[in-house]
Each structure stands twice: as C-alpha cells, then as structure tokens.
Amino acid sequence: MAEKTYRDAIREAMMEEMDRDTNVLIMGEDIGVYEGTFRITAGMLKKYGPRRVIDTPIAEAGMAGTAVGMAMLGLRPIVEMMTMNFAIVAADQILNHAAKVRYFSGGQVDVPMVIRGPQGAGVQLSAQHSQTFETFYGHFPGLAVVTPATPADAKGMLKTAIRGKDPVIFLESAALYGMKGEVPDDLDFTVPFGQSRVAREGSDVTIVSYGRMLQVSLIAAEKLSNDEGIEAEVIDLRSIRPLDLQPSYASVAKTHRAVVVQEQWKPFGAAAEIAASITEEMFDDLDAPVARVTGEDVPMPYARNLELLATPHEPQIIAAVKKVMYHD
C-alpha cells in the first residue's frame, strides 16, 4: 500500500496495463505532446511512443469510432475524453456502435475499449462543461458505467475496464483528481464491477451514493454523528451498470430509511432508479419514503454563488436524513 492521488492512480493503472499488454493503447486530444489537460497522461508519450499514445484531432466521434474498430480487431484502446461533456459528440459511435455490435452480430466480436475522462461541476465551468453522465450512459445495455470514488477504486476499476471484453464508460470525478488515498501496489490488483461496498457503517439511516457525491455523503455522515448523534451507513455503489444494490437493501433492512445522493438533475436520474428499486424490494422495511438529494434542475450557471446553489452539498444531505428520520 502507498498513498497516491486519484490522478496518479489512473495513470498508474494505464501504464501498468500498457506494460503488461501491448494491445493496450491510448488516444485522445492533447494527451501526448501536451501531456493532457489534467496531466493524467504525463510522461506516457515519451515512454510508449506515438503508435501507442496517439494525439488525435479534435474529433470525438472519430476517436470513439476508431476505438470500436480497433477493439473489434483485438486491440484494447483507451479513449481519453478531455471532459466527458465532449463525448456527447461521439454518442452515435458509443451508443449505436460500441454498445450494440456484440449483440447484433450474435456475439461474434468482443469490444474491449474504455472511454474515460473527467466529469462534474465545481470550478465555474458553466453549462457545457459541468455535467455528469452516469444516468445518460447507465440507460444503455451493452455498456458498463463506473464511477470510482477513491484512488484505490480508480486504479482497480480502470484495470478491470482495460482487461475486460466490453465497452466501459469510466467516469472520473474531476474534483477528486487531487484526492489522496491508500492504493495497493499489487500489479494484478483489480476491483470488479457490480460490487458495491459499505463505505461507512451505521445503524440509523442508509445513504446511497457514488463518485464525488460519495465523499460529500461521508462528510455529511460525520457531521450527523458529531452534531446529531445520528449514525448513517454510507453505501458506495462504485458502478452504475452493472448496479449492485444488495448491500443497500441489507442496510435498509437494518436502518429502515434511505437517502440517495447524486450530483445532477433529479428527473429520470440514477437516484430515481435506485430509490425505485429500494422501494420495490424493501417496501415493507421502509419507515419513510426514500429521499433523493440531487442538483437543481437547471443548466449549470457560471457565477460562483449560483453554481453552489445548483449542486448538492452536506446541508442538503443532512436535511434529507433528518426528513426520513422525522427529525425536522
């Protein structure tokens, strides 16, 4: 174990896999000579050369689509989207091609590829650069959608993604790039998809989240413990597709109350899916309707005060917990 940042964990995962398997390569905009907008790929061009670290034109559909073709022929391409907001340009390639060619070919090809990049709000990037996409991609069969909340998960899940056989949407929280945490050194350390975990034990209420909001939920849980004497159990979903809700159900069986936290818009969101599933499975155990904490239903504004109002923070989570516990 060593302490590493989320950013370094991602770079290490890629470089270890590129060392291990020459079929792994990476392409993206300004990832080589420029070394990456977020410096995730720093040093990679120098080490692996331009055939394996490919600087592309600004052409997201071209990047994603060529990756599909490479993957169908046995390579394991990683596509870095400068931010996941830009990947919308590649929606046809990802949703109509990557996610479906295995199925409509009757299983004749694997599509081992990773589309990864940062997402989320928090640094005044306004409407086109602050979105999150787990709900969007989570809707589509044929994709895996993962949202690591810690450096260890970032590394272990990226390795799983690179070693897999299907397209993976790997959603990094830009706000977590500098976060430090313990990361195992084992070169074969992987974290499977579809296995959520208890991030904090508690007995009074269940908070379900993922990605950056998992970290916000943990802070809220500490405040609840210190200020209110409420012990929240916090579940980290880790992947949205496949979605493992068993630990959430087990927790609700104990606490009888649940709050689901997501960063983006409430309508038709991941939190709606999770809350509905908990309600379907655990209806008799629930002492209160499942609450959702989400961002406001507006495009992200630029002004700092408005941006803060648009995104969820600890106070909203604390308020939701108090509500399901009838403390308000």
């Binding site: 390569l25 055939r51 559909a61 071209g62 994603a64 689509g65 060529t66 990756a67 599909v68 073709g69 490479m70 993957a71 169908m72 022929l73 046995g74 390579l75 391409p77 046809d92 390639q93 109509n96 091609h97 060619v101 409509f104 070919s105 090809v109």
Partner: peptide, 25 residues
C-alpha cells in the same frame, strides 16, 4: 465480414480504426 451498419456513415470510423489495428499488429 465485420458488418452491416445501419447508421449512415457511422461505420467509417470503425473501418479506420480496424485498419490501424491491422498495421499495429
């Protein structure tokens, strides 16, 4: 035969990537 694609023009990028893979290999 690596497909038959229904979104007009969508497969051109796949073919380009496949060609890269064949040379890479």
């Amino acid at each position: 035969f690596y497909g038959g694609y229904g979104i007009v023009g969508g497969h051109l990028t796949l073919a380009t990537g496949a060609a890269y893979a064949l040379r890479y290999q």
